[in-house]
Amino acid sequence: MDSRMFSGVAGLNFSSNLSDDRELVDAPAGRGKLSPTGFVVLSVVLGFIMTFGFLNNFVVLLLFCKFKKLRTPVNMLLLNISVSDMLVCLFGTTLSFASSIRGRWLLGRSGCSWYGFINSCFG
């Protein structure tokens, strides 16, 4: 491996987790967080995604339960995607929504890891 690939990398801050209220080292002043209006817009968008994503996937699950003709192998793959999307709406988007309402990440480093795991696993 060429050592030139890593030259100058040691001084960079790769962490974008602001859960401990520290500013980013390499970010210009005032650019580390959204404005209050930005958080409101983000909250509204995440609220719509969370609500409609959950409801639409719930309707898909109800249709699969009600109509046995829909239980084909290909549709079972679609059911799997729907269940996965519903779990992201419940466990992933909910955390982002709650944090955007408050204007900061609420659950610290372990919550950030949980958020990343949920979205990676179910997404």
Results as ranks from 00 to 15, higher is better:
R71E: 05
S96Q: 12
F64E: 05
V44I: 15
F117Y: 14
L34I: 07
A29G: 04
D21H: 13
S84C: 14
M50S: 07
R22H: 09
D26R: 04
F48C: 05
V9G: 02
C121A: 13
K66D: 12
M5V: 10
S113I: 14
V60W: 15
S35T: 15
F91V: 03
M1F: 11
L61P: 01
D85E: 10
L18G: 02
S96L: 15
L70P: 01
L61H: 15
T37W: 10
P36S: 07
S99D: 01
F67I: 01
M5H: 07
N13A: 14
C65T: 12
L79R: 07
S35E: 13
V60G: 08
G8C: 00
V60P: 05
V83N: 07
I49S: 03
G8R: 01
D20C: 01
R109I: 07
F48W: 03
S19Q: 06
M86Q: 14
I101D: 00
V9P: 01
R102L: 11
N119T: 12
S110Q: 14
P36F: 06
A29S: 08
V59Y: 10
V40L: 14
R31S: 15
I81C: 06
S16Y: 03
L34S: 11
G32Q: 02
P28R: 06
D20P: 01
L55R: 02
W105T: 04
W105E: 04
F67A: 00
I101A: 02
S96T: 03
Y115H: 00
G92W: 12
V59F: 12
D20M: 03
L42D: 05
F14Y: 15
G92F: 14
R109Y: 06
S110C: 10
L61D: 10
V41N: 01
L34N: 12
G116K: 04
F67S: 04
R4E: 13
V40S: 10
L87I: 03
M50N: 09
R22D: 10
L18I: 00
T37S: 13
T37Y: 06
I49M: 04
G47V: 12
C121P: 06
G30W: 00
S100C: 13
G92M: 11
L12V: 08
T37N: 09
K66T: 14
F67P: 02
S7H: 04
N80C: 06
P28G: 04
Y115V: 01
L55F: 09
L107P: 00
F117G: 09
L79A: 13
M1E: 12
Y115K: 01
S100P: 05
R22L: 07
V83L: 15
L90S: 13
V88L: 13
N75T: 15
L90N: 07
P73V: 05
A98K: 06
D85A: 11
F91I: 02
L18A: 00
V40H: 11
V74P: 05
I101N: 00
S15F: 00
V83I: 15
R4F: 13
M1T: 13
L70S: 02
S35A: 12
V40A: 10
L62N: 04
D20E: 07
D20T: 02
P73L: 06
G108D: 06
R109K: 06
L62I: 05
R31N: 11
E23R: 08
P73W: 05
F91W: 11
